Amino acid sequence: MQIKEIIVVEGKDDTAKIKQAVTADTIETNGSAVNQKTIDLIKHAQEKRGVIIFTDPDYPGQRIRHIVSQSVPGCKHAFLTKEEARAKRDKGIGIEHASVDAIRDALGAVYELTEVQPIAITKEDLIALGLVGGPQAKTRREKLSQMLRIGYTNGKQLLNRLHMFQISKDQLAKEMSGIFQEEQNES
């Protein structure tokens, strides 16, 4: 699998793992202190070939994703779940610990951010679906985030991510029906 865009990652171990999974070029941020030189390089990459931000599913990774996406509009996003990014032998979480298949799946399900358009999904919809404020809300959000590959979200972030990635009300309903079916089968 060859990736046209340049993939923004956190470090050299991430680059090595991605190159095991796909043919791609990377830019390494070297941690969460993303400097202006790196931002300028990412801007240039975005103009020439496009950029996919692919950071670890932890706080520093989210921080890097936010800094880069705010500084370089139009980037695409790939996500791994914490389970996919967890090492079997130790407590590390990161792209470098993910399987080659998980990396290919994440890069195959890239989201492109667009201008936020008013979408039919509302906070009331999320409450009605038990994604916010209920006893199973966190578990349901985790399952939904995995299914949609939008990264982990808390209650406040979920609506923004659904809008940001233009998830339709129909797509949300379809994924939630699968979650509800799974819950029924478990009980």
Rank of each mutant, 00 (worst) to 15 (best):
K48N: 13
R49F: 11
R49K: 14
V51Q: 02
I52A: 02
I53W: 01
T55D: 04
T55I: 05
D56C: 07
D56M: 03
D58G: 06
D58I: 05
Y59V: 15
P60D: 05
P60E: 13
G61W: 00
Q62N: 14
Q62Y: 09
H66L: 13
V68I: 14
V68W: 02
S71Q: 14
S71H: 14
V72R: 01
P73D: 07
K76T: 05
H77V: 12
A78T: 07
F79E: 00
T81L: 10
K82V: 10
K82E: 13
K82N: 08
E83Q: 12
E83L: 11
E83V: 10
E84S: 09
A85Y: 05
R86E: 10
A87H: 08
R89I: 07
D90H: 10
G92N: 13
I93M: 14
G94T: 06
G94H: 04
G94W: 01
H97A: 03
A98W: 00
A98R: 01
V100N: 08
A102G: 08
I103N: 00
I103P: 01
I103E: 06
R104I: 07
A106T: 03
L107G: 02
L107M: 10
G108P: 12
A109D: 14
E112V: 10
E115K: 04
P118F: 13
P118K: 11
I121W: 03
I121A: 04
I121K: 06
I121M: 15
T122C: 11
T122D: 10
K123D: 13
K123T: 11
K123P: 02
E124C: 10
D125M: 14
L126S: 03
I127V: 15
A128L: 15
L129N: 01
G130K: 05
G130P: 05
G130L: 08
L131A: 08
L131C: 12
V132I: 15
G133I: 08
P135C: 11
Q136F: 13
A137R: 04
A137I: 05
K138Y: 12
R140K: 15
R140S: 01
R140N: 04
R141M: 09
E142W: 04
S145R: 02
Q146I: 09
Q146E: 11
M147R: 13
L148R: 04
L148S: 07
L148T: 04
R149I: 02
R149C: 00
I150M: 02
I150W: 02
I150P: 00
I150V: 12
G151R: 02
Y152V: 04
Y152G: 05
K156S: 15
Q157L: 12
L158P: 00
N160P: 03
L162F: 07
H163P: 01
H163R: 13
Q166V: 05
Q166A: 14
Q166T: 15
Q166S: 14
I167W: 03
I167A: 02
I167E: 00
S168P: 03
S168H: 07
S168K: 05
D170V: 12
Q171M: 11
L172A: 03
L172D: 03
L172W: 00
A173F: 04
K174F: 10
K174I: 06
E175A: 14
G178P: 01
G178T: 13
G178I: 06
I179D: 01
I179A: 05
I179C: 03
F180D: 11
F180G: 01
F180K: 07
E183S: 11
E183W: 06
